[in-house]
């Protein structure tokens, strides 16, 4: 139980997927322009990450955890994640069409998102059980959503500021992201994690 709670807190705050491990920067910068799309994207990522972490760890422990097959984990995980995202797209299109329209191109982007693959691989590296790996995936997704939502708020405000010409657009967003990341350093050592 203690380890599970430590995993969740670590994934969301202390070792935040985006702001501490620097994974998933692409959708972080791409979808965080409006709060509504940020929340939608975050939700999809939580769903995909949780399921993929669980399924990939299960497949690893069942099939690939032998001396000569461990090297296959990268490509098998990519296969699992790609299929899962396709599945999520089909479900969204059928049951939540407005969200499907809002996410548009960003949903296939989750497939090649290093954060999702990262969560799966990190779970294996740390040697988590299937349950703990799923929890880790969930926490990583929530941390990703948290970073996205926070940064969307920052960016919406940034639009009304007087920015120098050479910084407009991506440069000032990256600087702002760096500052948010430094702020999250404050969580280091929380609860001894």
């Amino acid at each position: 139980m203690n380890q599970t709670i430590a995993i969740i807190i670590s994934a969301i705050l202390v070792k935040n997927m985006v702001l501490s491990r620097f994974l998933g920067i692409c959708p972080f910068l791409g979808v965080s322009k409006k709060l509504s799309t940020a929340v939608g994207m975050g939700g999809a990522v939580v769903f995909v990450m949780t399921l993929s972490s669980g399924i990939t760890t299960a497949i690893y422990k069942a099939i690939l955890d032998t001396e000569n097959l461990r090297y296959l984990k990268t490509i098998v995980f990519i296969l699992v994640i790609a299929s899962l995202v396709q599945f999520v797209e089909i479900i969204l299109k059928k049951f939540v069409p407005p969200l499907y329209k809002a996410l548009g191109i960003y949903l296939p982007l989750i497939t090649t998102n290093c954060a999702v693959l990262g969560a799966a691989l990190l779970g294996i590296d740390e040697g988590y059980s299937v349950f703990n790996s799923t929890v880790f995936g969930f926490g990583a997704g929530v941390g990703f959503t948290l970073a996205l939502v926070l940064f969307a708020g920052v960016r919406e405000r940034l639009e009304y500021c007087d920015i120098p010409e050479s910084f407009k657009g991506l440069p000032i967003s990256l600087v702002a992201a760096a500052l948010v990341s430094v702020a999250f350093l404050g969580f280091q050592g929380l609860f001894g994690i």
Partner: peptide
């Protein structure tokens, strides 16, 4: 065979899902 087998299984799953949840 592992990769091929998994690919086949997922592909079949997706095909069934896309038919079942067709819009």
């Amino acid at each position: 065979s592992i990769l091929g087998g998994l690919g086949l299984a997922f592909g079949l799953g997706l095909a069934i899902a896309s038919k079942k949840f067709e819009v």
